[in-house]
Design a protein around this nucleic acid. Structure first.
Lengths: 347, 347
DNA sequence: CTGAAAGCGCTAACAG
DNA sequence: CTGTTAGCGCTTTCAG
């Protein structure tokens, strides 16, 4: 590990000068030829700054804390973390992730992150819910990921549920479906409201009337299957927008029992939770992919922009939109949905 | 953030004394009552040591680098990281995870970890393969996770594939199956060898003769389904040990086509890759869970024991074995397989 | 038994 | 334009 001291000695200047130059603070302060020599020796020696030493001095570590429950056990989290890590890496930050199990060890894990001097936190949930931010996070830069602050005091990055539903439903319209059903979620979820609204609006924008009896909000297992089955018999829908892939499965099951083939007799669009499975077992299913990667990416950008108090407009993140393939394509068709960034009260 | 300085001032001693006491190096060096006061004030002030400052001095960070490809996108990795994080947390370490995409950014990500001063590395693959360790990792404490060093120079933690197959096959024997098939993997995988051997040995130990025609090694999709179907017709097996859940699915499909019910007419044991899915759609499937969590846990322990050059025998990790429920149980039955630790030449 | 002093690598005032 | 100085919080000799 070559140090600034080393470079200073070899160049015949003091450490402070080296520091100035290597931090690009030498504009009009250090003679340019000296600066050049310093940079050159630094490169030659393969100098890498020691983040620890810098942090000790500056109080900034360029480490971001990522707090989430079940980080590892669900496939959802993966994409978020991946995106967050990529963005962090691109911005010169590191991600320190901790896994919590409910409120139990949350505070202690957060405390550990604090001791390591993280500059800010991301607090992620596994699906968008109203969330109470832990007190211990209060006076840190903080971004909620796939979660909404109940008090609206913190910025958050969330999927645009309305658009997910709007796009999915519109595609069913364009595919020529006459009676488009919505198989929703009976549990209270933020996503449910937005999706129902998007479904309804897409129908109305297409000149259809919203028919409540085409909507069924289900839990799961037997009763859910029964409810979908009833819907089949009652309304004979030819298009289905499903809250998630588990619910899409009920439609598949019913279709099979009615001798209908998905992709020919009926069309199904489902929001995808477990992509691998959908691709493996239901290649005909059109899926809406939740933008997990993008959520992670944008959250990190947002957080860094708060920490450094700067605009990251110059920084180009990966695109979050993809063209929509035709609905009847045999290969899995994916809709990448867009994100919304909710504002925050605290500046 | 209370510092040692603070405590020193309040207690009327010097920082060095505080340091000694708080690091438990005061045995016979600091008067015990003074030590007591120091400890008390530290507790009262809620003192937490600053790892950065300590690291700067000691050269040890108590941070572990976890390097893996596709960290986030596969459900496998999740369990490993979770286990690693739990162990790290219990041992007073932090985990810094980086995601690599092939060899492309591997070196640079590792370099970043080095700059943050990690004490050692874990290098994980998504399934046990012979692996060439990147050069840049050479002179660091290193443990391979779910991977095997081709040169045998580094310790590794891997699932015991032989036992997986042995246990699974034995269960089919005990369940009364007469003709036990093995639906293996046609690709070259380390797991495949061990599993075939375990399958064979379990049969022999049960007094059966190994019948090659009951084994079919398949890739996937159509041809795989065909091969399994052929096996069905040819040998009418009543027990199946499947390489993974995708392959178990072919058996389910064939069973359905033959009008057979899994759990009644035939028994199936599959190694589980996508637990969520298996539980949702095939509750009758007996699964062998790969010990991802445990791999992470033990790898971390191993790595820390190398770093600190101490025996972690006093440290009790979570158990990796579970009693085997009866095979025909309606609830998913899980077999937790054991691990093997491969030795290392170095040291 | 305890404290003073040095220093890990780096940054930031402040002199010169 | 450049160097000196001080110090971030902690550990570790080495004197006393």
């Amino acid at each position: 590990m070559t140090t600034m001291k080393e470079i200073a000695k070899q160049t015949g200047v003091s450490v402070s000068t080296v520091s100035l130059v290597l931090n690009h603070r030498d504009e009009g302060r250090v003679k340019s030829e000296i600066a050049a020599t310093i940079r050159e020796t630094a490169a030659r020696l393969g100098y890498k700054s020691n983040p620890l030493a810098r942090s000790l001095r500056t109080g900034k570590t360029r480490i971001l804390g990522f707090v989430s429950e079940q980080i590892a056990t669900t496939p959802y989290a993966g994409g978020i973390i991946l995106g967050a890590q990529d963005a962090a890496s691109a911005l010169g930050y590191m991600l320190l992730t901790v896994n919590t199990e409910g409120r139990a060890n949350e505070d202690s894990e957060i405390a550990a992150l604090k001791r390591y001097g993280v500059d800010g936190f991301m607090y992620a949930k596994m699906s968008n819910r109203y969330t109470d931010v832990p007190d211990v996070l209060r006076d840190y830069p903080l971004v909620l990921v796939d979660a909404t602050d109940r008090e609206g005091s913190y910025p958050s990055i969330e999927p645009d549920e309305f658009r997910i539903a709007y796009d999915a439903t519109s595609r069913l319209v364009r595919a020529g479906c006459e009676r488009i059903a919505y198989v929703g979620c009976a549990e209270t979820m933020l996503a449910q409201e937005g999706r129902l609204a998007g479904y309804r609006r897409a129908l109305e924008d297409a000149g259809r009337t919203y028919d409540e009896s085409l909507v069924t909000n289900v839990f799961n297992n037997g009763p859910a299957l029964q409810a979908v089955s009833d819907l089949f018999d009652r309304k004979r829908p030819d298009g289905f927008f499903c809250f998630n892939d588990a619910r899409a499965w009920y439609v598949y099951e019913c279709a099979a029992r009615h001798g209908l083939t998905v992709g020919r007799d009926i069309s199904v669009v489902g929001v995808d939770n477990h992509r691998v499975f959908a691709e493996t077992f239901y290649p005909q299913l059109t899926t809406v992919e939740l933008p997990h990667y993008e959520m992670g990416y944008w959250s990190t950008m947002k957080l860094v922009s708060m920490i450094e108090d700067r605009d990251l407009a110059d920084f180009t993140p990966p695109t979050t939109t993809a063209p929509l393939p035709p609905l009847d394509t045999p290969a899995p068709a994916k809709i990448h949905c867009t994100l919304i960034e909710k504002g925050s009260v605290r500046d």
